[in-house]
Design a protein around this nucleic acid. Structure first.
Lengths: 198, 198
DNA sequence: ATTGTTTATGCAACCAGTTGCATAAATGCG
DNA sequence: CGCATTTATGCAACTGGTTGCATAAACAAT
């Protein structure tokens, strides 16, 4: 060990220990807070709806990250309206909005895919058969359920509405979710055809 | 804190501290070792080719995991052929093969998606424009390059070959990779259309 | 042969994300 | 009222994955 651990790197952000390069969760939270102030639990809920199509987060991650965003001066807590178990609302500060704009066009390679089913299919090809069909049918049902939800949201929020730039972008993100689920369903269907034909 | 940390849980696997529930990397490695013995560096290479369409791993992860698999008695090191920097080959043991078969049909929910670009698009919708187009064009080129590689592999290994059960499953996994890249390209294309139309 | 590069292995430290649990306020019920 | 349940917040510990660096053997060039 020649250098002290992690030398360099955090000089610019000594206090908050913010990492320089992209990391989605904080920015996903900032995005959610653009529209209106929100508490941790409300954010957790919204994450299961809109941004959550493509970025999952548990309530633990959200609370921890909110604390960091507050420390960094990007959001602030509103005077505690005493709701369920002392609920704290947070609102986006101008510096947070600025940080979000900076981050958006930053360079960042796509996250490599992680699909366990594909690993299982290759393993099944090598040492099967093992009865993988039942599990695939279960996954198929889950994807179908998600697809149904997305399509209901699409009909409710996007079909027949005036297509502003903002709405078109939001719709695109939802369509990406829909197409992804449809792709998963198609793969599952073909996998079942191969496996059941023994 | 009522209990000592992590009580229970590892009773069944005291020595190896193996977790009970699914986790792809070890099984992806076992799958790769089914075909023939391999050293860490060879596995790292193969991961960038076949299984790697859907499960990425750095050489560090691979070496650490090989050590665990050896400790668990699922693989063994062959007598060190002294090649480049004392290369160690590993081969799958019968217990490893058994473990792999056990794991394949295990129940496991799909990994939630993580696509940073979708977060960026929603942020762009809220606080844009920010000049995201250039970055999307860069991603588009990366997806196209990957697609080209996959299609070359498809022509070389699958087109016009006799379709055994094993080959059909392997082909399906490759097709999933191809369709995924095509989907990413289509999304990027539509995003550019929206953004460039200001 | 010495020196620099490439291939192979690996340690140590770090960070993101997960899990299990704790606490506390509000609500609903008998 | 008292007691269980639900909603909201949060700590602590763990684990998978990443990063930076170290070491060592083989190879290449001069």
């Amino acid at each position: 060990m020649k250098n002290p651990p992690d030398s360099g790197k955090m000089a610019a952000f000594a206090v908050s220990s913010r990492r320089t390069l992209s990391m989605s969760l904080p920015h996903a939270l900032l995005t959610a807070l653009v529209e209106h102030p929100c508490s941790g639990s409300e954010l957790a809920e919204r994450f299961d709806k809109s941004i959550g199509y493509f970025w999952h987060a548990t309530h633990q991650q959200i609370y921890r990250e909110l604390a960091r965003l507050e420390e960094a001066g990007w959001i602030e807590a509103l005077p505690a309206e005493t709701g369920r178990g002392r609920k704290r609302q947070f609102r986006l500060l101008p510096s947070g909005r600025k940080e979000l704009r900076r981050w958006i066009a930053e360079q960042q390679d796509p996250t490599p895919l992680r699909d366990e089913l594909m690993v299982r299919l290759r393993a099944e090809a090598a040492v099967g058969p093992t009865g993988l069909e039942k599990e695939i049918a279960r996954l198929q049902a889950m994807h179908q359920a998600k697809l149904d939800i997305y399509q209901r949201i699409e009909r409710r929020d996007f079909i027949g509405k005036e297509p502003s730039r903002e709405r078109r972008l939001q719709h695109l993100v939802l369509k990406a979710g829909i197409l992804h689920e449809e792709l998963s369903l198609a793969i599952a269907k073909e996998a079942l055809e191969i496996l059941e034909q023994q």
